[in-house]
Design a protein around this nucleic acid. Structure first.
Length: 701
DNA sequence: GAGCACTGC
């Protein structure tokens, strides 16, 4: 079905007003658009380093780090801060006497790639003077490494064994404005460390917007005399190209159709350059892709020489499909990438000249009352909108089409709510406790989470036995749970597995539950894929189904071809193997007996209950489920193997996701007697299971 | 009766 291609009128603020169109724009951009930016390709590495905007501020930065405990650096894209500042510090002596300069990144690929670049610039082999450390991959030499890139999650882990981070002289938190869960934990912890280690220097790399907030947080000057500040702000100009922003004159009724129209309008304007469109989810992406393919076909039939290559991009897409967005296209083809938020920070596609921004994003939210996470579509923040626009100005000047009015843009929140304020906090609280933060309610959070989220987390940790009634970490259970890189319910289940005689099976299940999209469903082979997937399904539910998949994968020698035949995610399964290895090492360390139930499902199911008893639901006569804990209505998620089956009376689930309804994911049938038997402290005895009145005392949060 | 933004340990 063809989407109607009507005129969308954009106007650019500050110019001639409504009616400015692409043809006029073409004049001003005609020269720059044909230049691919790489002006310094022929220069030596040293010369290239000196060309970076940050180089001019080298001495200024070193002065500030010398004289201030914390320096907030506003480093715009392309200024070279991530690669250069650690080297300046090393050159200035901050890595003398075995000390290390650490640089954190929110994402693994960034840590690895920046480390690689810096090693190259220093003519060093990666893993010696310059190294990186991410989960499953420690590429550092404890003796030789002086500049170390790591994920912020790894830094928090390191603090569990070395709370004062004694090896480090300087820590740079890169991309701090993204405010990921672990960046925020690290920020709170580092403020505490600084009080005990006056010599530790902190560099917070952030966007303009948050600089003052960071300064206010880290500044220990309680006088009015700015000369006694312990924190300074410095701005480094970026080196990107201008991006022209266009808004719609009036709100668009359907941003999917508007996206299609805008793509076609750009395409017909015959200005070169690829297009990147932002939408909120997989379904929207696929629907716009098919509309565009249809439009492109019509255009090709009408004799248009320039072709459109339309590509979807989202995290759930198989890796081979994802790779296509990075492929170069010939000059008579224009690439259109229709993406979710993955293209905002996680991946960078070169050659994008046009960005189309629908103005919305799908975000995680957390309801502390129900202990339920949900995915909600909300308007983007202004910061996010700028980030999206900037994806077009990386190689040459760009254009960004916002499918909303300028007035609506002004009404958007300046920045996205930090993850800390919209997450289930039980893993966070457990980690903080393990790091010696006794009073988590008084912990200095850069943005404190809702108190109710904390109470909810404390209650769950108490019910799992990780905290005692004074909210202190229990020995050894709580301490051990905190060591696992997992949600505490999974940790509890693993630590109990030896007692149930099924640690081998529970290891596989826990590992499988950490990966997404195990079952691959290509749109054109849907029924075939579902038929293959059904072969693994068992009536007990998703946990044992996943165990089946894992064991079959091992039995068939981890064959990628076998995965393809059965429409399974090979990369994901390989990851499950690695995760399982790591978890197995931890169980060995804690001397959890190695055993197997030898095909008997009961011990496995009972062990799952020992970790997930708080997530129980009972089938009601209405056909819907209700949580045993507090009677909230739930449904089986359509991705569950139990979805199409006769619904069991009692189920456990690993999480609830709210979309149109409240859906349980990873669902397994259980017997109600097991709940009473294995969690008597949580459920009272009676004909009806109900929430125990026992609650943790909140006298020592 | 009908669905899953993205990371990270």
């Amino acid at each position: 079905m063809a989407a109607p291609v009507g005129p969308i009128r954009f106007w650019k603020p500050g110019t001639e007003g409504p009616g400015a169109n692409l043809a006029e724009e073409r004049q001003s951009n005609a020269e720059v658009t044909s230049v691919i930016y790489n002006p310094h390709a022929s220069l030596s590495i040293e010369q290239q380093r000196q060309k970076l905007p940050v180089f001019k501020l080298r001495n200024h930065i070193l002065y500030l780090v010398e004289n201030y405990q914390t320096v907030v650096i506003i480093g715009e894209t392309g200024c070279g801060k991530s690669t250069q500042i650690p080297q300046y510090l090393a050159e200035a002596g901050w890595t003398a006497e075995g000390k290390v300069v650490g640089v954190t990144q929110p994402r693994r690929v960034a840590a690895v790639s920046v480390a690689g670049r810096v090693a190259e610039e220093r003519g060093a082999l990666l893993g010696h003077e310059v190294g990186y450390c991410i989960r499953f991959d420690d590429c550092t030499d404890p003796q030789a490494t002086r500049i170390k890139f790591l994920t912020d999650g790894m830094l928090v882990r390191e603090m569990m064994s070395d709370p004062l981070l004694t090896r480090y002289s300087v820590l740079m938190l890169d991309e701090a404005h993204e405010r990921t869960l672990y960046t925020d934990i690290a920020i709170g912890l580092l403020k505490k460390v600084q009080k005990k280690r006056g010599d530790l220097r902190l560099i917070v790399a952030s966007a303009t917007l948050d600089a003052e907030k960071f300064k206010a947080f880290f500044n220990q000057n309680d006088t009015n005399d700015p000369n006694r500040d312990t924190c300074a702000i410095l701005t480094v100009e970026g080196r990107t190209f201008p991006v022209d922003i266009f808004y719609t004159q009036s709100p668009v009724p359907d941003y999917l159709k508007s996206t299609v129209q805008t793509v076609m309008k750009i395409h017909q304007s015959d200005i070169d350059g690829d297009i990147l469109a932002f939408l909120t989810g997989q379904e929207e992406v696929e629907s716009v892709v098919s509309m565009l393919v249809e439009q492109a076909r019509i255009l090709a039939r009408s004799g248009m020489k320039k072709h459109l290559r339309v590509l979807p991009m989202y995290a759930g897409l198989p890796a081979s499909e994802q790779m296509k967005v990075f492929e170069r296209v010939s000059t008579n083809v224009r690439k259109v990438v229709v993406a979710t938020n993955i293209a905002e920070t996680s991946i960078t596609i070169n050659g994008i000249s046009f960005v189309i921004d629908c103005g919305f994003v799908k975000l995680r939210a957390y309801d502390p009352k129900r202990a339920v996470e949900s995915l909600v579509v909300v308007p983007v923040s202004q910061a996010s909108a700028s980030q999206r626009a900037g994806r077009s100005g990386r190689n040459r000047s760009g254009q960004c089409y916002r499918l909303y009015t300028e007035e609506d843009f002004q009404k958007l929140p300046p920045s996205t709510i930090p993850e800390m304020q919209r997450s289930n906090l039980s893993p966070v609280i457990l980690q903080l406790k393990a790091l010696g933060i006794d009073n988590v309610l008084r912990f200095h959070f850069l943005s404190p989470p809702p108190a109710q989220s904390m109470v909810q987390a404390l209650e769950l940790l108490y019910a799992l036995g990780g905290l005692d009634k004074h909210c202190r970490l229990t020995e050894p259970l709580g301490v051990r749970m905190a060591e696992f890189p997992l949600n505490p319910m999974f940790a509890k289940m693993l630590l109990e597995s030896g007692n149930f005689g099924c640690s081998a099976e529970i290891l596989s299940i826990a590992a499988m539950m950490q990966i997404q999209n195990v079952f691959v469903v290509p749109p054109n082979q849907k029924s075939q894929a579902i038929r293959e997937h059904r072969k693994f399904a068992v009536e007990e539910g998703d946990h044992l189904t996943m165990l089946n998949v894992y064991e079959a994968f091992i039995k068939f020698n981890k064959s990628s071809q076998w995965c393809q035949q059965h429409f399974l995610n090979y990369k994901g399964l390989m990851r499950a193997v690695t995760v399982r290895e790591q978890l197995k090492k931890m169980l060995n360390k804690f001397r959890v007996p190695k055993n197997s139930s030898e095909g008997d499902p009961d011990p496995i199911l009972r062990c799952i209950v020992s970790g997930f008893f708080a997530n129980a639901a009972k089938l009601h006569s209405t056909g819907a489920y209700r949580t045993v804990r507090d009677g909230h209505e739930l449904h089986i998620h359509p991705s569950s193997v139990l979805y199409a089956e006769k619904p069991p009376n009692w189920v456990l689930f690993s999480e609830v996701i709210q979309t149109n309804k409240y859906y349980m994911r990873d669902v397994t049938a259980v017997e109600s007697a097991w709940l009473l038997e294995l969690a008597p402290h949580f459920y009272q005895q009676g004909t009806h299971l109900s929430r125990s009145s026992k609650r943790p005392k909140m006298d020592n949060l």
